[in-house]
Structures are given as C-alpha cells and as structure tokens.
Amino acid sequence: MRIATLGPAGTFSELAACEYGRQLQHYTLHFYPALARVLKALPDEADCAVVPIENIVEGVVSPVIDSFVKRPLEITAELTIPVRFSLVANHVAPEKIYAQFVAQGQCSECLSRYDVPIMNTASNSEALRLLQQSREPAAAVVPEHSLREHSFAHVESNITDYAHNETRFVVVRTKQQAEPSARRSGVAYKTSLLIIDDTDHPGLLVEHLQVFAAYRVNLTSLVSRPTGQKFGHYHFYIECEGHVADSAIAAALTLIKLRNKVMVLGSYPDSSAT
C-alpha cells in the first residue's frame, strides 16, 4: 500500500500515516510538500492519502474540505492523533525561537514568556533542523515525539495551550480506488457529505437541517465553504452519526437531493467511539 502524506518526515502527518499503516500488512510512505500535492498523488502515485481534516483548536483544514468539491474523492477511515509540542533549546537563555506558524499559534502562552523574535518556518522539521544548525543561543518548538531521537540542553515539555489538543486525520482514496463501504455490525459509523450550492434560495440551510432533525440524524460537524463564484454562495460540509445505508440517513438524503446536489464522501468507523 502506497500512502501519501504531508512531509517532511517527523510531522504529525507522518505519525498518523504510520498509525494507519500498522493496520496494513505492508506499506510505504510517500511525502509531499503541500496538501494539494498529497491529494494530487491519487491514484497514480499513491493508493491512499492520509491528511488532516480538523484540529480541536484551529478547526477544519479548509484545503482538504475544498478538494472534495473539485475531485471525486472518498473518505474510507479516520484516526485521531494527540498534538503535543515541546520547546527545546541549545541554551537556557535562547535569543530566538524557530516555530512553524501553526505550532506558534497552538503554543502562544509559553512563547509569550520569551521576549525574543519568533522565526517562522515551513514545517516543524525545519524548525528542528535550524536549531541544530544554529551556533547562537536558540530554541525551537517541535512535536514531542521528536524528543525520542534527539537530546537538548534545555527542554520544556507539553507546552501546548490546550492540554487535550488533537488533530483528526482522514484516509482518502479516489472513487475508483475505494472499495464499497459495507456496514459491519456493532461498529459506530460516521458519514461525511457535501451539499452543493447549485440552487441557492432563502432558507436553504434551515430546510436541510429540519430534514435531518425530522429523521433524528445527529450532525457532528457543519462547515460552510465559499463556492468561489460570488459572495453569499456556500457549499456545506456535513458529518453525521451513522452509515449512509441506515434508513434514517438514506431517507433524509433522498429529500435533500430534491433541492440540491449531494455528494456522499463516505461512511467509516467513528474514531471517537473506539
């Protein structure tokens, strides 16, 4: 199994891809520099992609949500990875700190205690590399799992602003690569779908929410994304409890499809229920 994910090595994406890979008999990782490039690797360069879709602090990962509108992709699995950062330094009094911009935002309370410049990097791995190359007193914000392979003069562990910070990743394939999603007994499922804004009218979203409520379908996520055509026009990314084959979800989608185009992105085991 060829797994595409966001590089370079040492990222939380690699951690997620390896966790998914351990469920398989054999796998190889292929790193790409941007999320768009990761998804573009399907299907010729990779059999599946493992990409972040939501962080408990930062919210949804918009490029991934938007990609579902542009290409016939399917979500086949999800997994949740704890996000923990450490501040590591070559001196107890660093004069600058290297940090990837997302990591900086998630560790702002710790960084605010240091009255030194924050040097933004393209990745957590680059922050670590620049620290290792620095001959001046410096520090870096790095994923906590990096500490297993390196030693530092000064370490502050678990500096993330939110103690229970997590990122949810999804496994994505093209429709041609994905196998039919059969419902397994005793497994809690989640279904992802897109409601495409092709017939905009007043009350559009309310109508759809009322349909889900009428059939007692519990929504776990609702995100509006601009269509890119004009102001006020949005697609809606929705996640709900259950499998698309469940009678309640099937009935709700039948009614919604009378008014708007619906793209079912897949039903897969709910990682929060395991």
Rank of each mutant, 00 (worst) to 15 (best):
V244R: 12
S221K: 07
A188Q: 15
A163L: 12
R129F: 15
Y189R: 01
F101A: 11
S272N: 11
P82F: 02
A214P: 01
S112F: 02
I238S: 01
A214R: 07
A99G: 00
G228M: 07
F152R: 01
N90H: 04
V217I: 10
Y20Q: 03
A122F: 08
G59M: 12
G242F: 00
V142A: 07
E126W: 01
V64P: 03
E239S: 07
K261N: 10
V217D: 03
G186S: 10
F31H: 05
S134Y: 02
F231E: 12
L219S: 09
Q106M: 12
S125W: 07
A16N: 05
T121M: 09
E58N: 10
I196A: 05
I159G: 03
R129Q: 14
S125N: 12
T167L: 04
E109Y: 10
M119H: 12
S247Q: 13
H150T: 15
E179W: 00
E109C: 05
R168D: 06
K230L: 13
H26G: 07
S62P: 04
A153P: 00
S221D: 10
P72I: 13
P117I: 06
R71H: 15
E95Q: 15
S13Q: 07
A245L: 12
N124E: 14
V51T: 05
I196Y: 04
D161F: 06
I196F: 06
A245S: 14
M119W: 07
Y215C: 04
V172K: 01
P52I: 01
A89N: 03
N124A: 14
A214I: 00
R225P: 03
S267V: 03
D197Y: 04
L73F: 13
H150N: 15
E78A: 15
S181W: 02
V50D: 05
F85G: 04
H150G: 04
V244E: 11
C18T: 12
A213F: 08
A49C: 11
D44K: 09
T160A: 12
C48D: 05
F68H: 00
P63R: 13
G228W: 09
T220D: 11
N260R: 10
A77I: 02
R148F: 11
L258M: 14
V142P: 04
L39S: 04
V171G: 00
K257R: 15
K261Q: 13
D246T: 06
D270V: 02
V64R: 03
L222I: 14
H164A: 14
